[in-house]
């Protein structure tokens, strides 16, 4: 065990190097974007922030990314998902929800692409009512189902039915408010010297 120091020394210095390069250095570089507050983004309202929590709770991130790639990397722009993302798009995002999967489409700009509140409610209630080929799960448990007369002001009629209605819960309203707030399509500010991955 005399040589344990070499081991501990070597093990720690390799880890230290990785902490420095992958945590400390990006924090210093990208913290600048954060502190200058240069962003076209608005802070989230209370309801949108609650919707963000619902988005996390129901694991939307496991199928939907929130980062648009350069045309070199993918057909993101051709699909109408918006301009390539920049770091300042995320200054109010804690935790970040960039995602790593596109089992569903990118949602960076879903608020611009689909501004209809009703569409989002019906789509969350049962995606296949609106998008026949969708494999997204239903989130019907976020809605109350009623039949008969229109039960409340904010009740929505289920398409292709005579008298079926859904009433969004507070959670559903918040989630839709968050989705509608996802707009990262304005021309980004360019802080001096900022260079991002293509």
């Amino acid at each position: 065990m005399k040589k344990a120091y070499i081991f501990v020394f070597g093990g720690s210095s390799t880890l230290l190097l990785s902490i420095f390069l992958l945590v400390v250095a990006p924090r210093l570089q990208m913290g600048v974007v954060q502190s200058e507050g240069v962003s076209v983004q608005e802070p989230y309202t209370e309801q949108q922030a609650m919707g963000r929590k619902i988005y996390i709770e129901y694991g939307c991130i496991y199928c939907h990314s929130q980062q648009v790639r350069d045309p070199v990397a993918g057909a993101d722009e051709s699909f109408g998902w918006g301009r390539p993302s920049v770091p300042s798009d995320y200054i109010y995002d804690q935790p970040h929800l960039m995602g790593t999967s596109r089992t569903g489409p990118d949602l960076s700009n879903v608020g611009s692409r689909q501004p209809s509140e009703e569409w989002h409610h019906l789509h969350l209630y049962d995606p296949r009512l609106l998008v026949e080929w969708s494999i997204m799960p239903r989130h019907a448990f976020l809605y109350q189902q009623r039949t008969g007369e229109k039960p409340a002001d904010k009740a929505l009629k289920v398409p292709e039915t005579e008298d079926e209605w859904i009433i969004p819960s507070e959670e559903a309203d918040a989630l839709v408010a968050y989705l509608l707030a996802l707009k990262r399509d304005a021309e980004p500010p360019q802080p001096a010297g900022e260079k991002t991955d293509e």
């Binding site: 990785s18 992958l22 990006p26 924090r27 990208m30 954060q34 995320y90 200054i91 935790p95 970040h96």
Partner: peptide, 15 residues
């Protein structure tokens, strides 16, 4: 989590 902010949190996450 408070050590990490915005886009940088993504790299800490995947690190």
């Amino acid at each position: 989590h408070f050590l990490h902010v915005g886009a940088q949190q993504a790299i800490a996450n995947w690190w």
